[in-house]
């Protein structure tokens, strides 16, 4: 019995390790060959020990591309998107769960509809709309759809959380003479910390790596985001593989750092999105 358990344990541990290798190895391969000379990709085996480490690939990747500019754009656009989604979602869900009006059900339904609409089906018409209202190639061309497509999930998460928060506290403040906006800011927002964190993380995960909309709505490098560092560099240095590998590693790095920092919150966020979805 004990022996059997042990054997079972070993096989399952093996499964876990094999899968970890499968998930991780392509990334290790990428980093490995970002540190050698391009030719070595052809001549060496599966992995190679870099001697010497060619950090110059990274400095070139950093300074010969728009990497830093695009990184800045990505951070700015995503921060704005997260803030707007949190604010809009909290406002709308407060109106729909707390306040009394005839259309609240209908508006909730409308906002949730966005959960089912495939983003890419709006690419073609949005191009025309954005060109008509003259926001193509501006930050708004990314911000508006990023907020719009993350809002349904944000609205869903905040309104289901608001349902579980007792109303008495805010009702008391409202009686005390605070207006609805102040109650929202002072009482409701602080109580919503957990769900705001989830909404922020989901919005970030939705938008950080997005590039199809950016590719469609932007033409100049002004507002392009991080994925374009990879897309542009592969064209520019088509035979210099090591540098391309370096750019790819660099582009992946910010997301990996954020993931390691927010690991617990991200796990919780995905879980909360799932359990309540």
């Amino acid at each position: 019995m004990v022996g059997q358990e042990k054997k079972g344990f070993r096989i399952s541990t093996l499964l876990l390790i094999v899968l970890a290798v499968i998930q991780l190895f392509p990334l290790i391969w990428l980093i490995d060959f970002s540190l050698v000379e391009s030719d070595q990709l052809f001549t060496s085996g599966i992995l190679v020990w870099p001697s010497p480490f060619r950090w110059v690939n990274y400095t070139r990747a950093l300074f010969e591309s728009n990497f830093l500019h695009y990184l800045f754009n990505s951070i700015l656009i995503n921060a704005l998107a997260v803030i707007l989604v949190v604010v809009f979602a909290t406002m709308a869900s407060f109106a729909c769960t707390r306040m009394r009006w005839e259309l609240s059900g209908f508006v909730s339904l409308l906002l949730m509809m966005g959960l089912m609409i495939p983003i890419h089906a709006t690419l073609l018409p949005n191009y025309i709309i954005f060109s008509k209202i003259k926001i193509l190639d501006t930050i708004l061309a990314l911000l508006i759809p990023y907020v719009a497509f993350s809002l349904p999930q944000g609205f869903f998460l905040t309104s289901s959380y608001m349902d579980s928060v007792p109303k008495e506290l805010e009702e008391a403040t409202v009686i005390d003479g605070c207006g609805v906006y102040r109650t929202l800011m002072i009482i409701v927002l602080p109580m919503m910390k957990a769900s705001i964190a989830t909404v922020s993380i989901m919005t970030y995960l939705n938008n950080w790596n997005e590039f199809v909309m950016a590719m469609t709505f932007l033409s100049s490098p002004d507002w392009k985001t991080l994925p374009f560092a990879v897309l542009e560099f592969t064209g520019q240095y088509s035979s210099d593989y090591a540098i391309q590998f370096a750019v790819m590693t660099l582009s992946a790095l910010p997301a990996i750092v954020i993931y390691i920092l927010l690991n617990k919150n991200i796990t919780k966020g995905v879980a909360m999105g799932a359990v309540k979805g």
């Binding site: 970890a20 998930q23 392509p26 991080l226 994925p227 990879v230 897309l231 790819m248 990996i256």
Partner: peptide, 12 residues
Amino acid sequence: IYFLPNVISVAV
């Protein structure tokens, strides 16, 4: 480790 590829950009 299992989740890591998920956070990396689709472009990469």
